[in-house]
Simulated assay, not measured.
Amino acid sequence: MEEKAKMRRLSTWKLKLRMFLATVLLFGLIYAILMVVGSILGLGGPLFYALLGFGVIFLQYLISPKIVELTMNVHYVSEAEAPRLHAMVDELARRAGIPKPRVGIAEIALPNAFAFGRTKADGRVCVTRGILNLLDEEELRAVLGHEISHIKHSDMIVMTLVSAVPLICYYIFWSTVFSRDDEANLVGIAALIAYFIGQLIVLFISRTREYYADQGSVEIGGQPHKLASALYKLVYGSAQFNRDDLKQVEGVKAFFLNDVSAAYGEIEDLRQLDMNMDGTIDLAELQRIKYGGVKVGMGARILELLSTHPNMLKRVERLSKFT
């Protein structure tokens, strides 16, 4: 038991270090771009675009909960309407040390869950109608623990802030790319390059926070093999979902537990997890992964760089370390 606790502490330290270094690199990138713009165009240029970028992000921060609610067709449920769901959220929130989030159900068939809100006190945890018909109680508890960990770690605020950096670079690019001034054109090209680099860093931070939320679920009582099994089922559920209906929620897929767009391509790889082919991942299977590892192809590793979520094989392998 002490060995597991020590390993979780070490894992937490590594995750925090990765997120800190990525964030420093991201804001260092925008600082360098703004310094170059300032030296060429004058002090008004970078200040204006910085304020514009953060203004847009602040507006997004204010209205995003309503956008998510409308896109996902969310309605909030009372304890009388969903007693089991409320009981699990209440228990996990107390374990996490945060106020109990509002509990909602999204009336979409895609099996998944998500958390959103402006602050910890404004947190909302929602499950889709599809996930309620797919997971057993302990799998659902592990999923809810993951989402509550997102609220505990203030991921909504963190991702909103880091998303501002590529946005500012994008504004600078569009404001200079059609200029007749050669120096301004060079700034525009540099801003475009910084935009793409910034996006990759934001995606890296997003993937790291998914690992962190997985670990958070384990720390507040979720069983690693139950979370792994839930993720396995969600990939299959996403892959079987109607492609046209899937497009309607792709704009908010970063909120989901897995990358629903990548699910179809992940099915073949996931067969190496379910060794007895019963549609779940049990403790014995997860422990075999712990010692035997997984095989992640080069193509999957490259695609992961462009995803908001970690490669599912790597994610399950990491969960196996907590058994």
Rank of each mutant, 00 (worst) to 15 (best):
P65K: 03
R118V: 06
V177D: 05
E69S: 09
G198E: 00
F116K: 06
R9Q: 11
K314R: 15
K100P: 03
R141D: 06
G38V: 01
L34R: 05
P46K: 07
F204M: 03
A142L: 06
F173L: 11
M159K: 15
Q272M: 08
E147Q: 11
G38K: 07
A115P: 00
R141F: 07
F54Y: 10
I157D: 07
T308V: 05
L110C: 03
L43T: 10
F204G: 00
T71L: 12
A191S: 14
I33C: 01
G104S: 07
I67L: 11
D244T: 12
K314T: 02
V77Y: 09
R18H: 02
L132G: 11
E183A: 14
E3K: 15
F322W: 12
L305G: 00
I98Y: 10
G42A: 06
R102T: 01
K152W: 05
A113N: 01
C169F: 08
A50S: 13
A184L: 02
I105C: 02
L313D: 07
L273A: 05
I197Q: 08
I193D: 00
I151E: 14
V162C: 02
I157K: 11
E147G: 01
I197L: 15
L227P: 01
H150A: 10
A262C: 05
K253A: 15
E210V: 12
P224T: 08
E285R: 13
L283R: 14
L257N: 13
M19F: 13
A284P: 01
Q240T: 06
S320G: 09
N258F: 01
F256T: 01
A164C: 12
L257G: 13
L192A: 14
R180G: 15
V218F: 09
S307N: 06
G216S: 02
R180A: 14
G279C: 07
G53F: 04
F54C: 13
I148Q: 06
F255V: 01
S307V: 08
Y49R: 00
A22H: 10
L52C: 12
F241C: 08
Q248C: 00
A239G: 06
I172T: 14
K321Y: 15
A142P: 04
G117C: 11
G292L: 09
H150G: 06
M277G: 02
Q287P: 03
Y212M: 09
L227I: 09
A113M: 05
K226R: 15
G53P: 15
Y264A: 14
L319F: 14
Y232C: 08
R243C: 00
L140T: 03
G188V: 04
A106L: 14
A142I: 02
G53N: 09
S320F: 13
R18Q: 13
D259P: 10
I30T: 14
T12C: 03
N185I: 09
Y264V: 11
G279T: 08
I189H: 02
E139L: 08
A230P: 13
E3A: 12
T119Y: 13
F241G: 04
Q215C: 08
D214K: 02
E147I: 11
K14G: 06
S217A: 11
L62A: 13
A230W: 05
L257D: 06
L59Q: 00
F116G: 07
L167D: 05
S64G: 00
A262N: 11
I57G: 01
G44E: 15
Q223G: 00
E137L: 01
S163E: 09
S229L: 09
I108R: 15
S163K: 06
R141T: 05
L70A: 10
I108E: 13
F48W: 15
A80H: 05
A142E: 04
L17R: 04
G104R: 12
